[in-house]
Simulated scan of single mutants.
Amino acid sequence: MKKHAIVLAMMMAAALQAQTGHAQEKQRSARGDLVYRIVTKWSGHVQEAYRADVRRWARDMVPVFSQVPLDTLAKAADAKTFDAMNDMLLNDGERANMSLMQGIRSGSLKTPEKALGDAAADLVYVPVTPCRILDTRIAGGAIAGNTTRDFDVTAVANFGFQGGSATDCGIGSVGSFAAAVINFTVVTPSAAGYITAFPLGTAQPLAATLNYVAGDIRGNLAIVKLDQGPAANELSVYSFAQTHLVGDVVGYFINPQATNFNCVETSVSTFNINANTINFFNNPACPAGYKAITPYCWTASSGVYSQGGGYNANLNTNLTFCAWQNTTGATQQVFGGNVCCRVPGR
């Protein structure tokens, strides 16, 4: 990838020099060097994040690199992020903006796809008040040496049958979840050894959740993955030596879940449009954490007509605008606001 990017950058630099044949040699060389830096720095990102054909992207970007002023190109080359580099070029005039957008429309750039959480990896932690879910001194008896015992952790209304609390410990009603945070305590093991907690139905890992010596009373906090299959139990605990075991849950990790949009409306701003003019006005900004979804634009003035609305591409503040044409001979009032949304997630 790096070798390909270097060759591509050299090709782009040569193309730029060919387009600027009447410029001074020194300026052509400086522009070529800056293009070389940008392409070698970001071609890998373009290919990975935008699933782009890098050569098509290069062809679409040549007009952008050749048209922007040299000082703007230098700032773009020094940008720390790809978005910041794009902003430097996009904010330097309509031609650069249109050239970059052409890359997206032509297919050399594609919008990155983002998902709301990976169901297996992007788990959400929920803390709970510490609560006992198992105690073999009260129910079940000591775990025999070199054996495994299974325990129920999720969808339990009363943990009393395992020697735990006579409640659901604040986790019984949440359904299945992927992992639990449990403080395990061994009580008077018969010999030195260890316990290993692991998901039900899986191979016992070569790892120790807690190490102990004979007669010990010792605890350790562990995050334990749980089985999410149809079995009643989700957790297995192996013990090297005979021991009693106590388990107190302090939290759990649950799978992410898409939720409905949470939307608000901004205040409505009033703008004055002069007689016989066409103009646009930026709408109020969204609250922190929200993004503008759509502008709303209206007027009660006869002879004033909407010319559309959308995002203001020249600003980095997620502002939308409303455009108007006033065909009357007097100043008229128009109004604009934003519908702003966020995805709360879980």
Results as ranks from 00 to 15, higher is better:
Ser306Ile: 07
Leu8Lys: 06
Ala119Cys: 08
Ala275Asn: 13
Thr136Lys: 05
Phe198Leu: 11
Ala313His: 07
Gln19Leu: 10
His22Tyr: 08
Ala30Gln: 11
Gly337Cys: 03
Ala192Leu: 01
Arg55Leu: 05
Gly164Glu: 07
Ala180His: 05
Asn326Pro: 08
Asn279Glu: 13
Lys2Pro: 04
Phe65Ala: 06
Tyr238Phe: 15
Gly164Ala: 12
Leu73Pro: 01
Gly117Arg: 01
Thr209Val: 10
Ala178Ile: 01
Val174Lys: 03
Asn220Thr: 11
Thr136Arg: 04
Ala203Val: 12
Cys341Val: 11
Val68His: 02
Pro130Tyr: 01
Val268Arg: 04
Gln47Trp: 04
Leu116Arg: 06
Gly117Lys: 03
Ala77Lys: 07
Glu48Val: 11
Phe159Ala: 07
Val334Pro: 04
Leu221Lys: 07
Gly145Asp: 02
Ala180Trp: 05
Lys110Trp: 00
Ser106Glu: 14
Gly172Val: 08
Lys2Trp: 08
Leu221Glu: 11
Glu113Lys: 14
Ser99Trp: 02
Ser165Cys: 09
Thr331Ala: 15
Ala258Thr: 13
Ala285Asp: 10
Gln242Val: 03
Ala203Arg: 03
Ala166Asp: 13
Cys322Gly: 14
Arg59Gln: 13
Val68Ala: 06
Tyr194Pro: 01
Gly201Leu: 09
Asn233Cys: 03
Lys2Glu: 14
Cys340Glu: 01
Glu113Ser: 13
Ser306Met: 06
Asn97Val: 00
Gln67Glu: 11
Ala166Met: 08
Gly172Cys: 07
Ala232His: 02
Gln332Asn: 14
Arg55Thr: 06
Leu116Tyr: 09
Gln325Trp: 03
His45Val: 12
Leu116Glu: 10
Pro69Asp: 15
Gly32Met: 00
Ala18Pro: 00
Ala197His: 06
Ala120Arg: 04
Ala192Lys: 00
Arg28Gln: 13
Ala214Val: 11
Ile195Leu: 10
Leu235Asp: 07
Thr154Met: 08
Arg31Met: 04
Gln242Thr: 15
Thr259Leu: 13
Ile6Gln: 08
Ala214Ile: 04
Ser267Trp: 03
Ala30Met: 09
Asp150Ile: 04
Thr243Asp: 00
Asn274Met: 10
Pro205Leu: 12
Ala84Asp: 15
Gly215Glu: 08
Arg28Ala: 09
Leu73Phe: 05
Ala13Trp: 08
Trp298Arg: 13
Ala288Leu: 11
Leu109Trp: 02
Val35Trp: 05
Leu34Asp: 05
Arg342Trp: 06
Leu134Thr: 05
Arg137His: 08
Ala9His: 01
Pro205Asn: 10
Val68Met: 02
Phe253Lys: 00
Val186Ser: 04
Ile278Lys: 08
Ile143Trp: 00
Thr40Phe: 02
Ala84Leu: 12
Thr320Leu: 12
Phe253Ala: 00
Leu90Gly: 02
Leu8Phe: 10
Arg95Ser: 15
Phe82Ser: 11
Asn262Val: 11
Ser236Gln: 06
Ala157Lys: 11
Asn312Met: 07
Arg37Lys: 13
Ala142Val: 03
Ser108Met: 09
Leu221Arg: 06
Ile293Val: 15
Lys291Val: 09
Tyr238Ala: 02
Asp227Asn: 15
Asn314Met: 12
Ala207Leu: 04
Asn255Met: 07
Ser306Gln: 09
Asn97Gly: 01
Leu226Gln: 04
Ile104Val: 14
Ile182Lys: 00
Asn316Ala: 15
Met61Gln: 05
Thr129Ser: 14
Gln27His: 05
Gly219Phe: 08
Thr277Leu: 05
Thr72Arg: 10
Gly337Leu: 00
Ile182Trp: 03
Val128Trp: 11
Lys41Thr: 14
